[in-house]
């Protein structure tokens, strides 16, 4: 049995710990660098729109009045979908969007905090009363995507979901007011 001086023994353990700390430091630094790099080069940031809206009156007039909800193709061709998240449903329950085109999704809540995500995309945001949540995305494939509420909002939370219907550009036929509705099936 080799004789090891206790001090030597302590130093070896300290060395192992420092090596571990160094390795973990490298992992953390590389992960943070990657996040910062993608944020600076491709603008990969979380949704950070800050826009106030009065939750008590948002349904009466203005952008989130009933006649303005759903998908609208503006005169300049931009596509915007406006949705109210309320206990316990999204209004409208189906949102039609074109494939392969940048879409702006805007959400507001008149009651409590909700949240949502669209399956298979990076769309994921909270909907806080008093603020408009806004995300942009481009849907790559046609089909129906589930959009559930992902922030517990009350007893009916599990029933709160909507569908994002991604349709081919050729089927994107807005009416005179630029509105597009989901295809009836």
């Amino acid at each position: 049995m080799t004789h090891v001086h206790p001090e030597m023994h302590e130093r070896r353990i300290l060395g192992t710990e420092l090596l571990w700390a160094f390795g973990v430091g490298i992992f953390i630094a590389s992960t943070l660098s990657l996040v910062i790099f993608t944020a600076l080069t491709v603008g990969m940031n979380p949704p950070s729109n800050v826009e106030r809206i009065d939750p008590k009156t948002l349904h009466l007039s203005g952008e989130f009045a009933e006649q303005n909800l759903g998908t609208t193709v503006e005169a300049d061709g931009t596509v915007t979908a406006r949705v109210i998240a309320t206990q316990f449903m999204f209004v409208p329950r189906c949102i039609a969007v074109p494939q392969g085109r940048r879409v702006t999704l805007r959400f507001a809540s008149p009651d409590v905090i909700h949240g949502l995500l669209v399956t298979g995309t990076n769309v994921n945001t909270m909907v806080v009363p008093g603020y408009v949540s806004q995300v942009h995305t481009e849907f790559q494939k046609t089909g129906d995507l589930l959009m559930p509420c992902h922030e517990y909002c009350g007893l009916g939370h599990s029933e709160m979901w909507a569908v994002v219907q991604v349709i081919p550009e050729s089927e994107m036929k807005p009416d005179a007011e630029g509105r597009v509705s989901c295809a009836q099936r």
């Binding site: 992960t31 993608t38 940031n45 979380p46 949704p47 995309t121 942009h136 995305t137 481009e138």
Partner: peptide, 17 residues
Amino acid sequence: GYLLIYLLVFVPRGVVG
């Protein structure tokens, strides 16, 4: 695993902010 999901799933899905 984190890096693979970040680079092969998250980044290709594009920017939403």
